[in-house]
């Protein structure tokens, strides 16, 4: 991999060639807000918050830093009054879209916005609005996990994320990666009575595995199957145990050996 030099706000940094500028900025502690970026996934360029301005060494103009590849001599401005104005405008839109999302409120406050002019009136008891449609959940489920449980439904302002036909999905392996990457804490998952319930995805249910030793529910069955597929040599006996019991078993075996 070639190393290149790029300038962020006039200061030079080392970067891998073609590495997203946003990734470099994050590494070097240059603050660029973003909702739809994740290092483990392909850049998506949808939230538009990471817009920066290329001022030299490339096609000049505004572009998203997550899709901007580092090239030798690239000069980028990450924070100007123009950029701040756009981010402010975007955050006002997000605040109206997801008035209950703490992270959005925090970001908006950073940019001096307390209230969005676009806020819609809501009846008391109206459903919680947190999703900003950044697509991280969809992408992690499809691209990284490979389960494809959820996708975007409809288009334009009607867009939402859910399982097909708004029915519980049989494909979910209960990995909770979607909830882990969600920047606004939208996805509700609860474990109860041997069932992992993903309420947000049309009450998708995943059965939990019972430890054959202690009887506790340890992990979703399909998740464990997926994991075990990667480790075919694993002891049959171990497969049926929860982590604690595995440790116990290991200690027991070890002590037996030393005896």
């Amino acid at each position: 991999m070639n190393t290149v030099k790029i300038a962020l706000n006039g200061k030079t940094y080392q970067a891998e060639e073609k590495e997203p500028v946003l990734k470099v900025a994050r590494r070097e502690d240059v603050d660029i807000p973003a909702l739809c970026y994740h290092e483990g996934l392909d850049s998506y360029g949808a939230c538009r918050l990471c817009l920066v301005e290329v001022t030299g060494g490339g096609r000049p103009g505004m572009t998203t830093s997550c899709t901007l590849a580092a090239t030798e001599g690239l000069e980028v401005q990450t924070d100007s009054s123009e950029i701040a104005k756009i981010r402010k405008g975007l955050l006002e839109l997000y605040l109206a879209q997801a008035p209950d999302a703490d992270y959005i409120k925090e970001l908006a406050a950073q940019y001096g916005i307390k209230k969005s002019r676009f806020a819609r009136s809501r009846e008391p008891g109206a459903p919680v609005q947190k999703c900003v449609l950044c697509g991280l959940c969809v992408r992690i489920c499809n691209e990284a996990i490979g389960a494809s449980v959820i996708s975007f439904i409809s288009r334009g302002p009607e867009t939402e994320v859910n399982s097909p036909y708004l029915e519980p999905s049989p494909k979910c392996i209960g990995c909770t990666a979607c909830a882990d990457v969600c920047p606004t804490d939208v996805i509700q998952i609860t474990d109860k009575d041997g069932i992992r319930m993903v309420e947000t995805w049309s009450d998708t249910q995943v059965a939990m595995k019972k430890c054959s030793m202690c009887g506790a529910y340890c992990a979703p069955e399909p998740l464990m199957d997926t994991v075990y597929r990667g480790v075919p040599d694993l002891d049959e006996e171990v497969r049926e145990l929860c982590i604690k019991c595995r440790r116990r078993l290991k200690i027991r075996k070890f002590s037996q050996m030393t005896k």
């Binding site: 360029g45 949808a46 939230c47 538009r48 405008g89 975007l90 839109l93 997000y94 109206a96 879209q97 676009f118 900003v132 449609l133 697509g135 975007f152 409809s154 288009r155 334009g156 302002p157 009607e158 867009t159």
Partner: peptide, 17 residues
């Protein structure tokens, strides 16, 4: 607004407003 794909916020949300 009807034809917006809904991927990015300025188009999806902005046009609606």
């Amino acid at each position: 607004k009807e034809e917006s794909c809904g991927k990015c916020a300025p188009c999806r949300e902005g046009l609606q407003h």
